[in-house]
Design a protein around this nucleic acid. Structure first.
Lengths: 199, 199
DNA sequence: TTGACAACTTACCATATGGTAAGTAGATCG
DNA sequence: CGATCTACTTACCATATGGTAAGTTGTCAA
């Protein structure tokens, strides 16, 4: 199977898992979307779990390769976080799949979704500790901050359909535009406040 | 059917929907957990969707009755937000169910999960605009802030199993303890920074 | 030319799922 | 006493689901 065909297949699978979740996305539906039969899909990936594992693995690899080589630690953190929200490169689907993974918490495919998270989170934590007035922050403090920011971004990332439904498309567009600006302000405010230990 | 039996039933249903999602939680499984047969459950709630709708409705009602009559707008906002995270009164299950609802975004049970959110979000937005230096903030600005804080809280709320898996139980306990403190700091920092318009 | 391999297809299958139809035991009420 | 209602149970059922087994077709290298 060609490498780019495989990529395309995983793209569609990821989209479907993002949309309907592990249980909601049947292999027949995924195969159908690619003009394959269910059995052809099963031929390539032995089982649904394996396919799902493949999707998670790819997300994890994508994260690992998105390292920032920025100069200023503050802007490095900012750009890193803001980039998570961008719809390019299937970022939105990844967010949704991972959020579902958080919710399910079942040891699925041997927690393939969580092992990768560790280096990612540690990396982010270290980025915070690279900021001058956060150098004395404990791991836990820096992590708590980072996780709150992650939550702010990812929660908003999955909310578009609902917020559009509630407030209408025009208002949502306004919110969507204001969001990154407000987020940057939030990050700035949190950073200059410094960690608790030095409060 | 007795009112408290009904409550108990919905408690269990909510827990199962929180754990496995709409597709993952079969009516047979829910019924089983209550010592009922699948058909007995179906007798009470005509269909799975209707049962799910009932669960969402109850969550919505629970939210509406949790109004804050605090004095200081800042501490009112803080206590409101922090209370969302408390595991009491099935708060954690509600969070998970609603997060899944955000993810699925399907018009399920006529978007029963989202209509309630509007007053809730508007209430929170107004709480921000009640804060002295946020009085001139636009609706969108105040909303963006509130939604970021909501995201920070709820994202953490669903992450316990995963974070425990990654960092171990002891480290998680540390994080869990530090989280509300750091969150309060984040709220304070964001509030004193003020809205963008007056920046 | 042949043999191996990949990429399927056709044909099944056990189980689970949501749901219906019809009947039954017990309480309540006129 | 009989009627009605609630809370079920038993008996089904169509469909979907994940998965297996065996055969088929095309490619390509030895």
């Amino acid at each position: 199977m060609a490498s780019d065909t495989r990529e395309l297949l995983l793209d569609r699978a990821e989209a479907l898992f993002a949309e309907r979740g592990f249980y909601g996305a049947s292999i027949a539906a995924i195969a159908n979307e690619l003009g394959l039969t269910k059995q052809a899909l099963l031929h390539h990936y032995g089982s649904k779990e394996r396919l799902y594992g493949e999707v998670l693995k790819r997300i994890s690899e994508r994260f690992e390769t998105s390292s920032t080589t920025d100069e200023d630690p503050v802007s490095a953190l900012k750009s890193f976080l803001l980039r998570l929200q961008t719809p390019t490169a299937g970022g939105l689907n990844s967010t949704r799949v991972l959020m579902r993974e958080l919710l399910d918490n079942k040891s699925r495919a041997d927690t393939a979704g969580t092992w990768y998270l560790k280096p990612f989170l540690e990396h982010l934590t270290k980025m915070v500790q690279a900021i001058p007035n956060w150098q004395d922050a404990s791991d836990v403090e820096a992590f708590a901050l980072v996780y709150q920011l992650l939550g702010a971004i990812n929660y908003f990332g999955i909310s578009r359909p609902t917020l559009t439904g509630i407030f209408g498309a025009e208002t949502y567009a306004d919110i969507d535009q204001a969001f990154p600006i407000q987020l940057e302000r939030l990050i700035d405010a949190a950073i200059s406040a410094g960690p608790i230990s030095t409060a």
